[in-house]
Simulated scan of single mutants.
Amino acid sequence: MTTVQNKFLGDKDFVETLIPQRFPFVMVDKLYSYSETELVSGFTIQVDAIFFKKDCLVEAGLIEHMAQSVALHTGYQFYLKSEQAPTGYIGSIKDIEIKKLPRLDEEIRTTVSILQEFGGITLVNVVTTLNDVEIAKGQMKTVLAK
């Protein structure tokens, strides 16, 4: 696993170039580390996030953060090859377990682990933590548009 160059580490603007979503739908703002098989992303909960309600990020926002972390892996992979990343879609979400919802100004970190990749279809495990405590996990399958 390689740590992303420090100049990009907390650069929200750079991270946003790697995913197709735009404000107010962006649910990732940091890229901590990357390898071909794993990525660690971050997101600080802000009041202007589209899924922020009643002082916390709701379940749909947490799942969207997880999905955008997967998209960030693909986006950074294509960035390293100096290529435009294709659009991707969630093919399925499986075994999602949410234990806690993050509150305003808290930072969540998500680890995406690639389990299998073939023909533009990727199966991943996704684990989200808050202060090093697991708050959500699950599996996602994504499909790249041709």
Rank of each mutant, 00 (worst) to 15 (best):
P24F: 13
V40F: 08
G10P: 00
I50Q: 04
S33E: 13
L18M: 12
E59Q: 11
S41M: 03
C56E: 11
E64G: 08
K12Y: 08
C56V: 10
E16M: 08
E36V: 05
L57D: 02
T37I: 03
K54F: 10
F52Q: 05
E64S: 12
M27W: 02
V40T: 13
I63T: 13
F14H: 11
V26Y: 03
Q21D: 02
I63A: 10
I45Q: 02
S35A: 14
S35K: 13
G61Y: 01
K30G: 00
K54P: 01
D29H: 07
D55K: 12
R22C: 05
D29I: 06
L57W: 01
L18T: 06
V58F: 13
F14Y: 13
E59D: 15
G42A: 05
F43N: 01
E16T: 07
V58Q: 15
D48L: 09
G42V: 02
E38Y: 08
Y34L: 06
V28P: 03
Y32V: 06
E59F: 00
D48R: 07
T17K: 11
Y34D: 03
D13S: 11
F23W: 15
R22N: 11
F51S: 12
A49W: 00
I63F: 07
G10E: 06
S41I: 07
Q46L: 15
D55F: 11
A49R: 01
T44Y: 12
V28T: 06
V28E: 02
D48C: 08
